[in-house]
Write a protein that binds this DNA or RNA. Structure first.
Lengths: 207, 207
DNA sequence: GCAGGCTTTAACCGAGCGGTCAAACCGATC
DNA sequence: GATCGGTTTGACCGCTCGGTTAAAGCCTGC
Protein backbone atom coordinates (compact mmCIF):
# COMPACT_ATOMS: atom_id res chain seq x y z
CA UNK A 1 0.00 0.00 0.00
CA UNK A 2 1.69 3.18 -1.26
CA UNK A 3 0.35 6.63 -0.37
CA UNK A 4 -2.55 6.42 2.05
CA UNK A 5 -5.87 7.57 0.69
CA UNK A 6 -7.01 10.74 2.46
CA UNK A 7 -9.95 8.88 3.96
CA UNK A 8 -7.86 6.47 6.00
CA UNK A 9 -5.53 9.25 7.13
CA UNK A 10 -8.47 11.09 8.57
CA UNK A 11 -9.47 8.08 10.58
CA UNK A 12 -6.04 7.37 11.95
CA UNK A 13 -6.30 9.53 15.05
CA UNK A 14 -9.90 8.51 15.56
CA UNK A 15 -8.82 4.86 15.61
CA UNK A 16 -6.09 5.68 18.09
CA UNK A 17 -8.63 7.32 20.38
CA UNK A 18 -11.04 4.42 20.02
CA UNK A 19 -8.33 1.93 20.92
CA UNK A 20 -7.31 3.87 24.01
CA UNK A 21 -10.95 4.24 25.06
CA UNK A 22 -11.52 0.52 24.60
CA UNK A 23 -8.58 -0.38 26.80
CA UNK A 24 -9.28 2.13 29.55
CA UNK A 25 -13.05 1.70 29.75
CA UNK A 26 -12.68 -2.06 29.69
CA UNK A 27 -10.14 -2.15 32.46
CA UNK A 28 -11.28 0.62 34.77
CA UNK A 29 -14.92 1.22 33.94
CA UNK A 30 -16.77 4.08 32.27
CA UNK A 31 -17.06 6.34 35.30
CA UNK A 32 -13.50 5.81 36.48
CA UNK A 33 -11.99 6.97 33.19
CA UNK A 34 -11.93 10.62 32.19
CA UNK A 35 -11.75 11.99 28.67
CA UNK A 36 -8.35 13.37 29.66
CA UNK A 37 -7.20 9.81 30.41
CA UNK A 38 -8.38 8.62 27.01
CA UNK A 39 -6.68 11.50 25.23
CA UNK A 40 -3.44 10.91 27.08
CA UNK A 41 -3.65 7.18 26.35
CA UNK A 42 -4.04 7.94 22.66
CA UNK A 43 -1.38 10.64 22.72
CA UNK A 44 -3.68 13.36 21.43
CA UNK A 45 -5.23 16.55 22.71
CA UNK A 46 -8.38 16.22 24.78
CA UNK A 47 -10.35 18.52 22.50
CA UNK A 48 -9.69 16.16 19.62
CA UNK A 49 -11.74 13.48 21.32
CA UNK A 50 -14.73 15.80 21.26
CA UNK A 51 -13.95 16.84 17.70
CA UNK A 52 -14.21 13.24 16.49
CA UNK A 53 -16.76 11.75 18.87
CA UNK A 54 -18.85 14.60 20.18
CA UNK A 55 -19.09 13.42 23.75
CA UNK A 56 -17.73 10.89 26.19
CA UNK A 57 -20.97 8.95 26.02
CA UNK A 58 -20.90 8.71 22.24
CA UNK A 59 -17.28 7.60 22.30
CA UNK A 60 -18.27 4.82 24.65
CA UNK A 61 -21.18 3.93 22.42
CA UNK A 62 -18.83 3.46 19.49
CA UNK A 63 -16.57 1.21 21.55
CA UNK A 64 -19.56 -0.94 22.44
CA UNK A 65 -21.01 -0.96 18.95
CA UNK A 66 -17.76 -2.17 17.45
CA UNK A 67 -17.70 -5.07 19.88
CA UNK A 68 -21.31 -5.96 19.31
CA UNK A 69 -20.97 -6.07 15.56
CA UNK A 70 -18.05 -8.47 15.87
CA UNK A 71 -19.90 -10.43 18.53
CA UNK A 72 -23.04 -10.88 16.48
CA UNK A 73 -21.07 -11.89 13.44
CA UNK A 74 -19.06 -14.49 15.34
CA UNK A 75 -22.18 -16.13 16.76
CA UNK A 76 -24.10 -15.95 13.51
CA UNK A 77 -21.35 -17.79 11.69
CA UNK A 78 -21.43 -20.51 14.33
CA UNK A 79 -25.19 -20.93 14.07
CA UNK A 80 -25.34 -21.01 10.30
CA UNK A 81 -22.93 -23.89 9.83
CA UNK A 82 -24.68 -27.25 9.35
CA UNK A 83 -24.99 -30.03 11.92
CA UNK A 84 -27.59 -31.58 14.19
CA UNK A 85 -29.07 -29.81 17.18
CA UNK A 86 -26.50 -30.93 19.74
CA UNK A 87 -23.68 -30.08 17.40
CA UNK A 88 -24.98 -26.60 16.63
CA UNK A 89 -25.73 -25.77 20.23
CA UNK A 90 -22.32 -26.85 21.32
CA UNK A 91 -20.81 -24.71 18.58
CA UNK A 92 -22.83 -21.70 19.68
CA UNK A 93 -21.51 -21.99 23.22
CA UNK A 94 -18.02 -22.51 21.85
CA UNK A 95 -18.24 -19.40 19.70
CA UNK A 96 -19.51 -17.42 22.65
CA UNK A 97 -16.65 -18.62 24.81
CA UNK A 98 -14.07 -17.99 22.10
CA UNK A 99 -15.31 -14.50 21.51
CA UNK A 100 -15.13 -13.65 25.19
CA UNK A 101 -11.72 -15.28 25.46
CA UNK A 102 -10.28 -13.08 22.73
CA UNK A 103 -12.19 -9.98 23.85
CA UNK A 104 -11.92 -10.18 27.60
CA UNK A 105 -12.49 -6.48 28.09
CA UNK A 106 -15.83 -6.85 26.35
CA UNK A 107 -17.16 -9.20 29.02
CA UNK A 108 -16.23 -6.69 31.68
CA UNK A 109 -17.77 -3.82 29.75
CA UNK A 110 -21.06 -5.64 29.42
CA UNK A 111 -21.31 -6.53 33.08
CA UNK A 112 -20.35 -3.02 34.04
CA UNK A 113 -23.21 -1.65 32.01
CA UNK A 114 -25.76 -4.19 33.16
CA UNK A 115 -24.95 -3.84 36.80
CA UNK A 116 -24.38 -0.11 36.84
CA UNK A 117 -27.29 0.90 34.62
CA UNK A 118 -24.88 2.64 32.27
CA UNK A 119 -25.82 5.01 29.47
CA UNK A 120 -25.99 2.28 26.84
CA UNK A 121 -28.03 -0.35 28.63
CA UNK A 122 -30.40 -0.44 25.67
CA UNK A 123 -27.66 -1.67 23.35
CA UNK A 124 -26.72 -4.41 25.79
CA UNK A 125 -30.35 -5.34 26.24
CA UNK A 126 -30.95 -5.76 22.53
CA UNK A 127 -27.92 -7.97 22.13
CA UNK A 128 -28.63 -10.10 25.16
CA UNK A 129 -32.17 -10.70 23.99
CA UNK A 130 -30.94 -11.68 20.56
CA UNK A 131 -28.56 -14.15 22.15
CA UNK A 132 -31.38 -15.54 24.24
CA UNK A 133 -33.53 -16.02 21.15
CA UNK A 134 -30.70 -17.94 19.52
CA UNK A 135 -30.48 -20.19 22.52
CA UNK A 136 -34.22 -20.70 22.39
CA UNK A 137 -33.94 -21.53 18.71
CA UNK A 138 -31.04 -23.89 19.28
CA UNK A 139 -32.92 -25.73 22.01
CA UNK A 140 -36.25 -25.76 20.21
CA UNK A 141 -37.70 -29.24 20.14
CA UNK A 142 -36.04 -30.54 23.26
CA UNK A 143 -36.52 -27.86 25.92
CA UNK A 144 -40.05 -27.22 27.22
CA UNK A 145 -41.64 -23.85 26.50
CA UNK A 146 -42.16 -23.09 30.17
CA UNK A 147 -41.12 -24.13 33.62
CA UNK A 148 -37.72 -24.58 35.25
CA UNK A 149 -36.22 -26.35 32.22
CA UNK A 150 -37.22 -23.70 29.69
CA UNK A 151 -34.60 -22.34 27.31
CA UNK A 152 -34.43 -18.99 29.04
CA UNK A 153 -33.31 -20.65 32.27
CA UNK A 154 -30.68 -22.56 30.33
CA UNK A 155 -29.58 -19.31 28.76
CA UNK A 156 -28.99 -17.59 32.10
CA UNK A 157 -27.18 -20.63 33.45
CA UNK A 158 -24.97 -21.20 30.44
CA UNK A 159 -24.16 -17.58 29.69
CA UNK A 160 -23.29 -17.21 33.37
CA UNK A 161 -20.97 -20.19 33.13
CA UNK A 162 -19.23 -18.59 30.15
CA UNK A 163 -19.08 -14.95 31.20
CA UNK A 164 -18.37 -15.38 34.88
CA UNK A 165 -15.25 -17.32 34.12
CA UNK A 166 -13.80 -14.11 32.74
CA UNK A 167 -15.34 -11.51 34.99
CA UNK A 168 -14.66 -13.37 38.23
CA UNK A 169 -11.07 -14.06 37.26
CA UNK A 170 -9.49 -11.19 39.21
CA UNK A 171 -11.34 -12.19 42.38
CA UNK A 172 -10.69 -15.91 42.10
CA UNK A 173 -6.95 -15.59 41.69
CA UNK A 174 -5.96 -17.03 45.08
CA UNK A 175 -8.11 -20.11 44.64
CA UNK A 176 -7.25 -20.87 41.08
CA UNK A 177 -3.50 -20.48 41.53
CA UNK A 178 -2.67 -21.01 37.87
CA UNK A 179 -3.39 -18.30 35.35
CA UNK A 180 -7.04 -18.28 34.25
CA UNK A 181 -6.13 -17.07 30.84
CA UNK A 182 -3.34 -19.47 30.00
CA UNK A 183 -3.82 -21.79 27.04
CA UNK A 184 -4.27 -24.84 29.25
CA UNK A 185 -6.65 -23.21 31.71
CA UNK A 186 -8.84 -21.95 28.88
CA UNK A 187 -8.86 -25.36 27.22
CA UNK A 188 -9.92 -26.90 30.50
CA UNK A 189 -12.75 -24.40 30.95
CA UNK A 190 -13.88 -25.09 27.42
CA UNK A 191 -13.98 -28.80 28.23
CA UNK A 192 -16.05 -28.00 31.28
CA UNK A 193 -18.50 -26.08 29.13
CA UNK A 194 -18.77 -28.93 26.63
CA UNK A 195 -19.41 -31.31 29.48
CA UNK A 196 -21.97 -28.89 30.94
CA UNK A 197 -23.88 -28.62 27.68
CA UNK A 198 -23.88 -32.39 27.23
CA UNK A 199 -25.11 -32.95 30.76
CA UNK A 200 -27.79 -30.27 30.46
CA UNK A 201 -29.12 -31.55 27.14
CA UNK A 202 -29.13 -35.10 28.48
CA UNK A 203 -30.85 -33.87 31.63
CA UNK A 204 -33.58 -32.19 29.62
CA UNK A 205 -34.11 -35.32 27.52
CA UNK A 206 -34.33 -37.51 30.61
CA UNK A 207 -36.82 -35.26 32.34
CA UNK B 1 -39.01 0.06 74.98
CA UNK B 2 -39.19 3.22 77.04
CA UNK B 3 -36.38 5.79 77.00
CA UNK B 4 -33.74 4.85 74.48
CA UNK B 5 -30.32 4.14 75.89
CA UNK B 6 -27.91 6.84 74.85
CA UNK B 7 -25.94 4.33 72.83
CA UNK B 8 -28.74 3.50 70.43
CA UNK B 9 -29.66 7.13 70.02
CA UNK B 10 -26.16 7.90 68.90
CA UNK B 11 -26.38 5.25 66.23
CA UNK B 12 -29.73 6.32 64.90
CA UNK B 13 -28.49 8.80 62.33
CA UNK B 14 -25.59 6.55 61.45
CA UNK B 15 -28.05 3.76 60.67
CA UNK B 16 -30.10 6.13 58.55
CA UNK B 17 -27.02 7.05 56.55
CA UNK B 18 -26.00 3.42 56.17
CA UNK B 19 -29.45 2.50 54.88
CA UNK B 20 -29.43 5.30 52.33
CA UNK B 21 -25.92 4.38 51.21
CA UNK B 22 -26.94 0.75 50.83
CA UNK B 23 -29.87 1.61 48.64
CA UNK B 24 -28.10 4.16 46.46
CA UNK B 25 -24.82 2.29 45.98
CA UNK B 26 -26.70 -0.92 45.26
CA UNK B 27 -28.92 0.64 42.66
CA UNK B 28 -26.65 3.14 40.94
CA UNK B 29 -23.12 2.00 41.71
CA UNK B 30 -20.36 3.44 43.87
CA UNK B 31 -19.03 5.98 41.39
CA UNK B 32 -22.43 7.21 40.30
CA UNK B 33 -23.52 8.12 43.83
CA UNK B 34 -22.12 11.19 45.59
CA UNK B 35 -21.88 11.71 49.32
CA UNK B 36 -24.38 14.53 48.82
CA UNK B 37 -26.84 12.02 47.36
CA UNK B 38 -26.41 9.74 50.36
CA UNK B 39 -26.87 12.60 52.81
CA UNK B 40 -29.99 13.78 51.04
CA UNK B 41 -31.34 10.23 50.94
CA UNK B 42 -30.84 9.95 54.67
CA UNK B 43 -32.18 13.44 55.32
CA UNK B 44 -29.04 14.65 57.06
CA UNK B 45 -26.27 17.12 56.42
CA UNK B 46 -23.44 16.01 54.20
CA UNK B 47 -20.80 16.75 56.82
CA UNK B 48 -22.50 14.29 59.14
CA UNK B 49 -21.65 11.47 56.82
CA UNK B 50 -17.97 12.28 57.23
CA UNK B 51 -18.44 12.76 60.96
CA UNK B 52 -19.70 9.20 61.34
CA UNK B 53 -17.89 7.34 58.60
CA UNK B 54 -14.74 9.31 57.86
CA UNK B 55 -14.83 8.93 54.09
CA UNK B 56 -16.99 7.77 51.23
CA UNK B 57 -14.84 4.70 50.82
CA UNK B 58 -15.17 3.67 54.46
CA UNK B 59 -18.91 4.19 54.33
CA UNK B 60 -19.02 1.83 51.40
CA UNK B 61 -16.83 -0.62 53.27
CA UNK B 62 -19.32 -0.72 56.12
CA UNK B 63 -22.19 -1.35 53.73
CA UNK B 64 -20.28 -4.28 52.25
CA UNK B 65 -19.14 -5.66 55.60
CA UNK B 66 -22.67 -5.73 56.95
CA UNK B 67 -23.79 -7.75 53.94
CA UNK B 68 -20.87 -10.12 54.15
CA UNK B 69 -21.42 -10.90 57.79
CA UNK B 70 -25.05 -11.77 57.11
CA UNK B 71 -24.04 -13.69 54.00
CA UNK B 72 -21.45 -15.81 55.76
CA UNK B 73 -23.82 -16.56 58.60
CA UNK B 74 -26.63 -17.63 56.25
CA UNK B 75 -24.38 -20.05 54.39
CA UNK B 76 -22.70 -21.39 57.49
CA UNK B 77 -26.07 -22.29 58.99
CA UNK B 78 -26.96 -24.17 55.83
CA UNK B 79 -23.71 -26.11 55.83
CA UNK B 80 -23.81 -27.07 59.48
CA UNK B 81 -27.19 -28.75 59.41
CA UNK B 82 -26.98 -32.55 59.05
CA UNK B 83 -27.70 -34.58 55.94
CA UNK B 84 -25.86 -36.52 53.25
CA UNK B 85 -23.63 -34.87 50.66
CA UNK B 86 -26.31 -34.26 48.04
CA UNK B 87 -28.66 -32.88 50.62
CA UNK B 88 -26.09 -30.50 52.08
CA UNK B 89 -24.89 -29.29 48.72
CA UNK B 90 -28.40 -28.62 47.58
CA UNK B 91 -29.04 -26.71 50.79
CA UNK B 92 -25.91 -24.62 50.29
CA UNK B 93 -27.05 -23.56 46.83
CA UNK B 94 -30.51 -22.91 48.22
CA UNK B 95 -29.15 -20.70 50.99
CA UNK B 96 -27.03 -18.82 48.47
CA UNK B 97 -30.02 -18.24 46.25
CA UNK B 98 -32.26 -17.23 49.15
CA UNK B 99 -29.74 -14.77 50.44
CA UNK B 100 -29.37 -13.14 47.04
CA UNK B 101 -33.12 -13.12 46.58
CA UNK B 102 -33.69 -11.20 49.79
CA UNK B 103 -30.62 -8.98 49.27
CA UNK B 104 -30.78 -8.24 45.60
CA UNK B 105 -28.72 -5.09 45.88
CA UNK B 106 -25.90 -7.15 47.34
CA UNK B 107 -25.53 -9.20 44.18
CA UNK B 108 -25.23 -6.02 42.18
CA UNK B 109 -22.73 -4.52 44.61
CA UNK B 110 -20.49 -7.56 44.38
CA UNK B 111 -20.46 -7.63 40.60
CA UNK B 112 -19.85 -3.91 40.48
CA UNK B 113 -16.77 -4.32 42.62
CA UNK B 114 -15.44 -7.35 40.82
CA UNK B 115 -15.87 -5.91 37.39
CA UNK B 116 -14.86 -2.37 38.20
CA UNK B 117 -11.90 -3.17 40.43
CA UNK B 118 -13.50 -1.15 43.21
CA UNK B 119 -11.82 -0.03 46.42
CA UNK B 120 -12.91 -3.10 48.38
CA UNK B 121 -12.03 -5.87 45.98
CA UNK B 122 -10.06 -7.57 48.76
CA UNK B 123 -13.16 -8.04 50.86
CA UNK B 124 -15.01 -9.56 47.94
CA UNK B 125 -12.07 -11.76 47.13
CA UNK B 126 -11.87 -13.20 50.63
CA UNK B 127 -15.54 -14.00 50.66
CA UNK B 128 -15.62 -15.51 47.21
CA UNK B 129 -12.69 -17.75 48.06
CA UNK B 130 -14.39 -18.88 51.25
CA UNK B 131 -17.49 -19.72 49.26
CA UNK B 132 -15.38 -21.65 46.82
CA UNK B 133 -13.77 -23.64 49.61
CA UNK B 134 -17.21 -24.55 50.92
CA UNK B 135 -18.18 -25.79 47.49
CA UNK B 136 -14.99 -27.81 47.33
CA UNK B 137 -15.77 -29.23 50.74
CA UNK B 138 -19.35 -30.02 49.82
CA UNK B 139 -18.26 -31.80 46.66
CA UNK B 140 -15.33 -33.58 48.24
CA UNK B 141 -15.44 -37.28 47.47
CA UNK B 142 -17.34 -37.07 44.22
CA UNK B 143 -15.67 -34.29 42.20
CA UNK B 144 -12.14 -34.89 40.91
CA UNK B 145 -9.35 -32.71 42.27
CA UNK B 146 -8.36 -31.44 38.84
CA UNK B 147 -9.57 -31.18 35.30
CA UNK B 148 -12.78 -29.82 33.77
CA UNK B 149 -15.00 -31.44 36.40
CA UNK B 150 -13.13 -30.07 39.41
CA UNK B 151 -15.07 -28.32 42.16
CA UNK B 152 -13.78 -24.88 41.21
CA UNK B 153 -15.32 -25.20 37.76
CA UNK B 154 -18.58 -26.25 39.37
CA UNK B 155 -18.33 -23.25 41.65
CA UNK B 156 -18.01 -20.76 38.81
CA UNK B 157 -20.84 -22.43 36.90
CA UNK B 158 -23.23 -22.67 39.82
CA UNK B 159 -22.54 -19.31 41.38
CA UNK B 160 -22.98 -17.82 37.94
CA UNK B 161 -26.33 -19.56 37.62
CA UNK B 162 -27.41 -18.08 40.94
CA UNK B 163 -26.00 -14.56 40.73
CA UNK B 164 -26.64 -13.84 37.07
CA UNK B 165 -30.33 -14.45 37.54
CA UNK B 166 -30.39 -11.32 39.64
CA UNK B 167 -27.80 -9.16 37.96
CA UNK B 168 -29.03 -9.80 34.42
CA UNK B 169 -32.62 -9.15 35.39
CA UNK B 170 -32.80 -5.54 34.19
CA UNK B 171 -31.38 -6.48 30.80
CA UNK B 172 -33.51 -9.57 30.26
CA UNK B 173 -36.79 -7.84 30.93
CA UNK B 174 -38.13 -7.95 27.35
CA UNK B 175 -37.47 -11.68 26.99
CA UNK B 176 -38.74 -12.77 30.36
CA UNK B 177 -41.97 -10.78 30.18
CA UNK B 178 -43.11 -11.75 33.67
CA UNK B 179 -41.46 -10.19 36.69
CA UNK B 180 -38.17 -11.90 37.58
CA UNK B 181 -38.69 -11.21 41.22
CA UNK B 182 -42.25 -12.37 41.65
CA UNK B 183 -42.92 -15.27 44.01
CA UNK B 184 -43.66 -17.67 41.15
CA UNK B 185 -40.70 -16.66 39.01
CA UNK B 186 -38.32 -17.06 41.95
CA UNK B 187 -39.77 -20.46 42.81
CA UNK B 188 -39.28 -21.54 39.22
CA UNK B 189 -35.67 -20.39 39.19
CA UNK B 190 -35.10 -22.25 42.42
CA UNK B 191 -36.47 -25.39 40.82
CA UNK B 192 -34.12 -24.86 37.91
CA UNK B 193 -31.19 -24.64 40.32
CA UNK B 194 -32.25 -27.82 42.11
CA UNK B 195 -32.49 -29.56 38.80
CA UNK B 196 -29.11 -28.15 37.78
CA UNK B 197 -27.41 -29.40 40.93
CA UNK B 198 -28.98 -32.84 40.53
CA UNK B 199 -27.91 -33.07 36.92
CA UNK B 200 -24.38 -31.86 37.67
CA UNK B 201 -23.84 -34.27 40.55
CA UNK B 202 -25.24 -37.11 38.46
CA UNK B 203 -23.00 -36.06 35.59
CA UNK B 204 -19.93 -36.11 37.80
CA UNK B 205 -20.82 -39.57 39.12
CA UNK B 206 -21.39 -40.92 35.62
CA UNK B 207 -18.11 -39.57 34.34
C1' DG C 1 -28.31 28.49 84.83
C1' DC C 2 -24.17 27.53 83.22
C1' DA C 3 -20.27 24.66 81.78
C1' DG C 4 -18.69 21.10 78.78
C1' DG C 5 -18.93 17.69 75.39
C1' DC C 6 -21.30 15.31 71.61
C1' DT C 7 -23.98 16.27 67.44
C1' DT C 8 -25.31 18.98 63.54
C1' DT C 9 -24.90 22.61 60.38
C1' DA C 10 -23.70 26.16 56.58
C1' DA C 11 -20.07 27.81 54.25
C1' DC C 12 -16.10 26.93 52.14
C1' DC C 13 -11.87 24.61 49.60
C1' DG C 14 -8.94 22.74 45.90
C1' DA C 15 -9.20 19.47 42.38
C1' DG C 16 -10.95 17.30 38.54
C1' DC C 17 -14.73 16.71 35.55
C1' DG C 18 -17.15 17.13 30.62
C1' DG C 19 -17.27 20.35 27.27
C1' DT C 20 -16.26 24.84 24.34
C1' DC C 21 -13.73 28.05 21.52
C1' DA C 22 -10.79 30.91 19.04
C1' DA C 23 -6.58 30.74 17.24
C1' DA C 24 -2.67 28.18 15.20
C1' DC C 25 -1.38 24.71 12.05
C1' DC C 26 -1.00 22.23 7.72
C1' DG C 27 -1.43 20.22 3.17
C1' DA C 28 -3.68 20.94 -0.95
C1' DT C 29 -5.13 24.00 -4.96
C1' DC C 30 -4.72 27.87 -7.83
C1' DG D 1 2.97 32.50 -2.21
C1' DA D 2 -1.85 33.57 -1.10
C1' DT D 3 -5.86 31.16 0.18
C1' DC D 4 -8.84 27.92 2.05
C1' DG D 5 -10.91 23.93 4.61
C1' DG D 6 -10.14 20.32 7.57
C1' DT D 7 -7.05 19.24 11.95
C1' DT D 8 -5.02 20.13 16.23
C1' DT D 9 -4.09 22.79 20.16
C1' DG D 10 -3.96 25.40 24.84
C1' DA D 11 -6.59 28.07 27.53
C1' DC D 12 -10.73 28.48 29.58
C1' DC D 13 -15.75 27.74 31.67
C1' DG D 14 -19.21 26.20 34.91
C1' DC D 15 -20.04 22.62 37.76
C1' DT D 16 -19.78 18.84 40.98
C1' DC D 17 -16.89 16.12 43.54
C1' DG D 18 -14.84 14.43 48.32
C1' DG D 19 -13.49 16.53 52.24
C1' DT D 20 -12.69 20.40 56.06
C1' DT D 21 -13.76 23.71 59.52
C1' DA D 22 -15.53 26.84 62.75
C1' DA D 23 -19.36 27.84 64.93
C1' DA D 24 -24.13 26.87 66.42
C1' DG D 25 -27.32 23.67 68.72
C1' DC D 26 -28.44 20.65 72.23
C1' DC D 27 -28.46 17.47 76.03
C1' DT D 28 -26.65 16.45 80.65
C1' DG D 29 -24.74 16.82 85.26
C1' DC D 30 -23.94 20.09 88.66
Amino acid sequence: MPAKPAESKRKEKAALILAAADELFGEQGYDAVSVRDVAQGAGVNKALVFYYFGSKEELFGQVLTRYYDAHRKALQDALEAPGDLDERFRRLVDAYFDFMASNIRFARLVQQQIVGAGPHLGLIQDNLCELERWTEHALAGIAPKDGPLAARHMFVTISGAVINYFTYAPALGPVWDEDHLSEEAMAERREHLHWLVRVLVQGIRDA
